[in-house]
Design a protein around this nucleic acid. Structure first.
Lengths: 212, 212
DNA sequence: TGCTGACTAATTCTTTTAAAAATTCAAAAA
DNA sequence: TTTTTGAATTTTTAAAAGAATTAGTCAGCA
């Protein structure tokens, strides 16, 4: 039985999420959120110390949902590649649905990486850890061989990030954030990337008779 | 025998390169370049239509050097991985030595990706084509198997870019451009990335007896 | 403890202005 | 005709000031 306080906190998070996801952090005022809820502005500050904390709380809330969903799937997944694919599709869905929620992070990121990096770092770590967990399943299965699990997970995550920045840097339109159709393209590239990451380019099966 | 005009052009490029590489595009004025050369400012405009063209010409000049150097090495390289390693080390060296030359591109990039993207696109393509060429050597050797060469080259390039942005996004200090010691870290990650890209994580040699 | 309205402080958004830098041009020099 | 320049002109940038919006605080009510 959640306490009354928690319910109200959740309500605020829900409304703030909608606003942030739709208009972004910069274009959402505390006054608007309060109005949506028919609360007073001051009440928001009773539950959250400042706007940034609220934003971070929303971020955490949303990312938690995603991580849990993926964990649930992974728990009963037999095939490694399917698990990874599910993870990146979920991640993509998260971004698509929350569009401007992340746009703020990336734009703020350029101005003052230190401040945001400190706050965003843990989120990155959690996602990397999830990849690490997923990979470890493949190791147990004997599907893959990995020496340093965390490092490899980071490598995988970085390479997938590269697909996004790569696509976006070729996009002459908006650069901050993908358009809906670019999401598809990025996802497609990421899938190919994963395939190579797992299998590599070297031929697994050497020719029975080498002609040379 | 290069014409007098070409010699003067080259002189301007050389001096501009030094300035741009050292102080960056924004902090270099046409007046300064002219002064370095003991030319009049107006003469620069006789050889280059505007500052941006000069900058782009310098960029092309520098990138050409790098591409040619790598091509020369690749031509007589036997091993695919060595060729790729040489390529990324050269690329890293290029960035290290020309530091602020590229910093401008990346910072401008955020403001107006369209304009710069149009100009920078061809450079990207040329580097990707070089990777494509390098990969094709491995294909001929039978070292690797690739269905779509260009696409795979792009994938490789994107994933390597991911190492950079990945490292930089964790760096809380400056985000625009790597510090000298970060270059090493990025390069190290990229090397690991290449190894995985070529070999994959899946075990090449299945166990002779599977216990299951 | 949970909540509010009114208050203060910080931030962002113009507008203005001055300086610096890019770019042009008529004309001299070669 | 081609190359070069000094001086004039236009654009950009930078700083300052002021207004307006928004974040954040606080004393007090229920």
């Amino acid at each position: 039985m959640p306490k009354n306080v928690d319910i109200k906190r959740a309500k605020i998070l829900e409304v703030a999420k909608k606003r942030f996801a739709h208009f972004g952090m910069a274009k959402t005022t505390m006054a608007e959120i309060a109005k949506d809820l028919s609360f007073s502005k001051a009440l928001l500050y009773y539950y959250f110390p400042d706007k940034n904390s609220l934003y971070m709380a929303v971020l955490e809330y949303v990312i938690n949902e995603m991580i849990n969903k993926v964990d649930a799937f992974v728990a009963k997944a037999s095939n490694l590649e399917k698990a990874i694919l599910f993870a990146i599709e979920s991640r993509m869905e998260l971004m698509r649905e929350n569009y401007n929620l992340f746009e703020y992070s990336s734009s703020l990121f350029m101005q003052d990486p230190a401040e945001l990096g400190k706050s965003l770092g843990p989120f990155f770590d959690r996602i990397r850890d999830q990849f690490s967990r997923i990979l470890s399943i493949g190791v147990k299965n004997g599907e893959i061989v990995v020496d340093d699990l965390d490092e490899t997970a980071e490598l995988l995550l970085f390479s997938l990030m590269g697909m996004r920045t790569g696509i976006l840097s070729k996009d002459l339109n908006n650069c901050l954030f993908p358009t809906p159709d670019e999401f598809e393209l990025i996802l497609a590239k990421q899938k190919k990337m994963i395939s190579i990451f797992l299998r590599g380019l070297k031929p697994n099966v050497p020719m029975p008779q080498d002609v040379s």
